[in-house]
């Protein structure tokens, strides 16, 4: 399992600079928002965490379709499915998701405080955004694995993956942004939405890989 994690991590970092493109995309999305809503710093400070979250959500969907497609094209996926008896396929999917997260999404979570400064978010808000992104974005990878597995056989499944995944990712977005707002403005405490966010990530960490493994087995032909 560690071997699979390391291989996927190496591929994510080495092949085509996937991680870098994700971060650039994130930067570009977040940078475009002020042009849309105007350079009012108070407004930006208010909606800043939400912008960071939406940017991270979109960037998280970006490389998702390749999660299994690359393995399918070179035949590795068959071998992963065949190794089911030794390494349960759901577990392999989980490991692949984690590697995908570390290689593609973690860099932009790390970049988010910098963008928070651009958005004029106050320090506590930046910390909250960072913490919620760190805890919440794995859920996007896990739930995204279902879409990636279902669309693995499609030549251009990327859009379809996004269409299928976005409605399911709404709870993650809601609680991520709620926790940020609770930390900065709200009278509500920060912890409840944050803990629910963590629970969502754990929940999707179970249901996502299982459903994805089921879909991959069904698609193995």
């Amino acid at each position: 399992m560690l071997a699979l994690f390391l291989r996927d991590l190496r591929l994510g970092i080495r092949a085509g600079g996937g991680a870098l493109v994700g971060v650039i995309f994130f930067l570009a999305v977040v940078a475009v928002i002020p042009f849309g809503v105007g350079p009012d710093l108070n407004l930006l400070a208010r909606i800043g965490p939400a912008i960071l979250w939406i940017g991270a959500l979109l960037a998280g969907l970006l490389g998702l379709e390749r999660l299994f497609q690359a393995d399918r094209e070179d035949g590795s996926l068959d071998l992963l499915v065949l190794a089911d008896g030794r390494h349960m396929l759901a577990l392999s999917v989980l490991v692949k998701c984690l590697a995908h997260w570390v290689a593609n999404i973690l860099p932009l979570v790390i970049a988010s405080p910098l963008l928070g400064i651009f958005m004029n978010i106050e320090p506590i808000g930046i910390a909250a955004a960072f913490a919620t992104l760190l805890v919440g974005t794995p859920a996007i990878a896990f739930i995204g694995a279902v879409g990636a597995a279902v669309a693995v056989a499609l030549p251009r499944g990327g859009l379809l993956v996004s269409v299928l995944i976005l409605p399911l990712a709404i709870p993650v977005l809601i609680f991520g942004v709620s926790a940020c707002y609770a930390a900065t403005t709200g009278p509500q405490p920060f912890l409840p939405p944050f803990l629910i966010l963590a629970a969502l990530t754990l929940f999707f960490a179970v249901i996502g890989p299982f459903a994805a493994a089921l879909a991959l087995k069904a698609n193995a032909d």
């Binding site: 291989r7 190496r10 591929l11 092949a15 085509g16 070179d74 035949g75 590795s76």
Partner: peptide, 9 residues
């Protein structure tokens, strides 16, 4: 048919 090898590694 496929080799199950990664070209980048």
């Amino acid at each position: 048919h496929q080799n199950a090898m990664k070209t980048a590694l």
